[in-house]
């Protein structure tokens, strides 16, 4: 394995680690809430045993809250599962809206810590791209990480999928925040090369544009 391949492998592992750490934190939060709700049910039961009247409406509400947290946990685990499987998947047809949606959801914790809202505009019929899912996920993640600290006072990054003349695109709009520094994306050159994608910043529009080929050459990876 040459130095470049080592660097790519390290970057992939780092990315995987960040996502797993973020997901595990979310799961911990869900468990912590269920733990408190279950504890509260226990407290109320002990009080009832000592003669305090049991409020059935309250019990019902706690039970509903617990079910809501279990649904939340289930959704988190489903996303984790989708993401984990993408690591070992070869080149395949991918729904661009779905994969962008997955990465937007996985980046929500990071966004929330920066006080940023990620707004993905829904699209009924998404372009399909034939690529390696894990690398595309890493690319979208990097675009979101670039966009979040630069989205100005509105603190919102709007993400939009489009089928442009030259191929499918993911647009990250940073509000009206002017980007003054030159943006080269040199650190992503290896990834852009592997996915055969183009990433550019439209300074006047405050937009980051990720352009993808509909199909990457199989010998590219």
């Amino acid at each position: 394995m040459n130095a470049k391949q080592h660097a790519v492998k390290d970057e992939n592992i780092r990315f995987f680690g960040k996502i797993v750490a973020s997901i595990s934190h979310e799961i911990k939060n869900v468990l912590a809430i269920i733990n408190e709700k279950a504890g509260l049910l226990n407290d109320l039961t002990l009080m009832a045993q000592k003669g305090t009247a049991l409020d059935l409406g309250r019990i019902q509400a706690i039970s509903n809250d617990m079910q809501a947290q279990i649904k939340r946990g289930d959704a988190i685990i489903k996303n984790m599962n989708k993401f984990a499987h993408s690591v070992d998947e070869a080149i395949q047809q991918i729904n661009l809206m779905e994969i962008t949606g997955l990465m937007t959801t996985l980046a929500e914790r990071s966004a929330s810590r920066q006080g940023v809202t990620l707004c993905l505009i829904p699209l009924s019929s998404s372009p399909m791209v034939q690529t390696r899912p894990f690398l595309l996920e890493l690319l979208i993640w990097n675009c979101l990480q670039f966009a979040m600290p630069r989205c100005g006072e509105k603190k919102t990054v709007t993400i939009q999928i489009e089928q442009a003349m030259q191929g499918p695109q993911v647009k990250f709009s940073l509000g009206n925040n002017p980007i003054e520094e030159p943006v080269a994306f040199e650190n992503l050159s290896w990834l852009l090369e592997m996915v055969q994608a183009d990433l550019r910043m439209l300074v006047a529009e405050s937009q980051l544009i990720l352009s993808l080929p509909e199909k990457i050459a199989c010998n590219a990876i």
Partner: peptide
């Protein structure tokens, strides 16, 4: 949900 339930307990 965590903060309020913990507060109640």
């Amino acid at each position: 949900a965590f903060a309020k339930t913990l507060a109640e307990r």
